[in-house]
């Protein structure tokens, strides 16, 4: 098993770990962080497996994808954090309330 696969497995691990945290935690900040961990896992899978080119330079396309992905993740995180602050300002809690109906 090459190191590429090892990293990829770590990526998978991060993904599931993040998912677990997303499910288990209630605080929004933790949830946002969990999402970020998941994203990192995915990026890791993408990048790690790009290195399966025997000796030659790694495949550049996944790298570009990851850069795109990171920017997207950053943007989303920024929006999420801003939103979280607003939720907290409105409801007094940084948690998702039960669906409020009337």
């Amino acid at each position: 098993m090459s190191s590429a696969f090892l990293y990829a497995l770590v990526g998978v691990g991060l993904f599931t770990l993040g998912l677990y945290a997303l499910i288990v935690h209630t605080h929004l900040l933790r949830k946002i962080l969990a999402i970020n961990v998941m994203a990192s896992g995915v990026f890791l899978v993408l990048v790690a497996l790009a290195a399966r080119t025997q000796g030659a330079t790694p495949d550049p396309v996944p790298h570009a994808m990851v850069i795109t992905g990171i920017v997207v993740a950053v943007s989303a995180t920024a929006l999420a954090l801003a939103l979280m602050l607003r939720v907290r300002a409105e409801t007094g809690r940084a948690e998702l309330a039960e669906e409020s109906q009337e």
């Binding site: 993408l46 399966r52 939103l83 607003r86």
Partner: peptide, 29 residues
């Protein structure tokens, strides 16, 4: 209501995208 809804929507949306992206990664590789 709207902010909580939006927040939940954002998390779900991101989660869905990440699932999808991991799938894309596997397919690409």
């Amino acid at each position: 209501d709207a902010l909580t809804g939006a927040m939940r929507y954002l998390l779900v949306s991101l989660l869905g995208s990440l699932f999808y992206l991991l799938g894309v990664a596997l397919l690409y590789h």
